[in-house]
Computed example of a mutant assay.
Amino acid sequence: MGKPDAGTPRERYRAQVREEIKKYAWEQIATAGASALSLNAIAKQIGMSGPALYRYFANRDELITELIKDAYRSLADILQDRAEAGAGLDGLAHALREWALADPQRYFLVYGTPVPGYHAPADTTRITAEIMAVILDACTAGQPPVAPPSPLETHLDDHRVWARQHPAPPSALRRALAFWTRLHGVLSLELAGHFDGMGFDPARLYADEIEGVTGH
């Protein structure tokens, strides 16, 4: 018997079950963290045997990989949509915060502490490259090149593997990394609750960091 064509009832059912498995996986992660993710526990919640569930995800790492790809894809799509609507670097920064606050567990899965024993496959970097490309585009747009480049900019220009084939000038490379590190620093602390009880509005701190990166 040949492999069923995509879009057949069997394929649609398989896709539906995989989505249900991922839904319960996110619930587990929200309750106990990604390191405690258990396919057998998910199987019991669904009313499925462990061996049956393994027909949909071969192991825990395959399931985590799918969750990570979904998380990165959702952020990539949001940033791309905002960019196509005319948002500049500050607009992308606000979109990043909205995405993070909407689902902190999703944020921490991709930008928090790595899951013990898990190693992401190389193809997950393809989506992260899309995210960085949108940011590099925004950092490059309307920015005159800085001459001469700073020592850091020279270093980044010589070590631009992370930027893939993007033709961003050295000043844009530095701005993109400042955007990524400074904003994620604030978001990570906020979502982890480290600002609780300090008596200030994290949104104002985040906005000040945006101004520091964008200059406006």
Rank of each mutant, 00 (worst) to 15 (best):
Q80E: 14
L67P: 02
M48K: 11
Y72K: 13
S49W: 09
S35R: 12
A52G: 09
P51D: 07
G91E: 00
I78A: 14
W99L: 05
G86W: 05
Y107E: 01
G33F: 09
G91Q: 01
I46C: 08
L63W: 07
S49F: 09
K69W: 02
L63V: 06
W99N: 10
L96M: 13
S74F: 07
I68Q: 10
I46L: 15
K44T: 12
Y111F: 13
I78W: 04
P114M: 03
R106E: 01
G33R: 09
R97Y: 05
K69Y: 02
R97H: 05
A25F: 07
Y54A: 05
A58Y: 03
Q105V: 13
S35I: 04
E62G: 03
E27K: 13
G112V: 09
L67N: 03
G88Q: 01
G50S: 11
W99Q: 06
Y107M: 04
Y56H: 14
L67G: 01
E20F: 05
D70K: 09
A25T: 07
Y56T: 08
I42F: 04
R73F: 10
N59K: 05
D103N: 07
I21W: 08
R60D: 00
P51M: 09
R82E: 13
Y107H: 02
A76C: 07
P51I: 08
A71G: 04
L39C: 00
L63P: 06
A32H: 12
M48W: 08
Q28C: 08
I68L: 09
L63M: 08
F108N: 10
K22L: 14
A58V: 10
T113F: 07
A52F: 05
G112F: 12
Y107K: 03
E66S: 13
A43Y: 05
M48G: 06
L53F: 11
K44C: 08
Y111S: 09
Y24L: 13
A71D: 03
A71K: 04
Y72L: 14
R82A: 12
G50K: 09
W99F: 14
A43W: 04
P51W: 11
L92A: 00
G88H: 01
I78H: 07
L89P: 01
A43D: 07
T113L: 11
R60L: 08
Y56Q: 05
L39K: 00
T113Q: 12
Q28T: 05
D81Y: 06
L39R: 00
E98P: 05
A52I: 05
G50W: 10
E20G: 11
G112C: 14
R55M: 13
E98D: 15
P51T: 12
Y24H: 14
P51R: 07
Y72I: 07
K69E: 11
T31K: 13
I29A: 02
A52Q: 14
Y111E: 12
R73K: 13
F108Q: 11
L53N: 06
G47P: 02
A87R: 02
W26K: 06
T113I: 12
R55K: 12
G86H: 07
K22C: 13
A52M: 11
G86I: 10
A52H: 12
Y56S: 03
P104V: 06
E66R: 11
A34K: 01
Y54D: 04
W26T: 10
I42C: 02
L92C: 03
D103P: 04
I68A: 10
A25Y: 01
Q28N: 09
G86S: 02
A52D: 12
D61I: 01
L101V: 15
D90Y: 03
M48L: 14
A30P: 08
K23H: 15
A85R: 08
P104C: 02
